[in-house]
């Protein structure tokens, strides 16, 4: 099995390790870099608990090898906020968009790219947009509301905080 030196910029910090070719990106993030906010929920690319952003696109980090991410920029839940809370994190808290919290980091990462692409999504667009992420606790209503809250806050920062 080939070994590779990978160098991945995660949340603005360069991480460099020698890894086996088969090391999954999610294990690299969690175990080599100790960033345990990214979770694992399945083996079949179904649940989205491991969602991270690689070079601007949200992907399932259980379905990419760490070696594939070498030289790329990866963003995880730990890097979302630039001091304080990101509007999406705030939305999840404000609107009760989480219960057990296990799917939450993946949902937030997915929502972040969703809003970057479509700053004013309809409810239906949000539901389709997060359809690669499973949540077992919330029934999704309040996740949708959380993303709507964030969209509003990002689009009109003053109105939402008033």
């Amino acid at each position: 099995m080939s070994q590779h030196n990978v160098s991945i910029n995660i949340n603005g910090t360069e991480h460099s390790h020698d890894v086996d070719a088969r090391l999954l990106l999610v294990h690299y993030i969690r175990e080599n870099c100790d960033l345990t906010g990214t979770h694992i929920g399945c083996d079949s690319t179904s649940c989205g608990a491991c969602t991270v952003i690689v070079d601007g696109r949200a992907i399932k980090s259980c379905t990419m090898f760490a070696v594939q991410a070498s030289g790329k920029e990866v963003e995880t839940i730990e890097g979302v906020a630039d001091g304080g809370l990101h509007p999406i994190q705030e939305g999840f808290w404000e609107m009760h968009g989480l219960q057990c919290g296990y799917c939450t980091p993946g949902m937030i990462m997915c929502a972040k790219t969703l809003l970057e692409k479509n700053p004013d999504p309809t409810e239906e667009e949000i539901r389709w947009g997060i359809s690669g992420n499973l949540c077992r606790c919330t029934g999704y209503n309040k996740i949708v509301e959380a993303i709507q809250y964030a969209a509003e806050k990002i689009n009109q920062p003053e109105a939402a905080s008033a």
Binding site: R30, E31, D34, L35, T36, G37, T38, H39, I40, T76, I77, E78, V80, A81, L85, Q89, F92, W93, E94, H96, L98, G101, Y102, T104, P105, I108
Partner: peptide, 21 residues
Amino acid sequence: MKRKEDPRFIQGKGRYVDDFK
């Protein structure tokens, strides 16, 4: 009341079993 437990979860700072090393 907004949930007191949420700040750790929304920041990826929850501690689940697989997080213990």
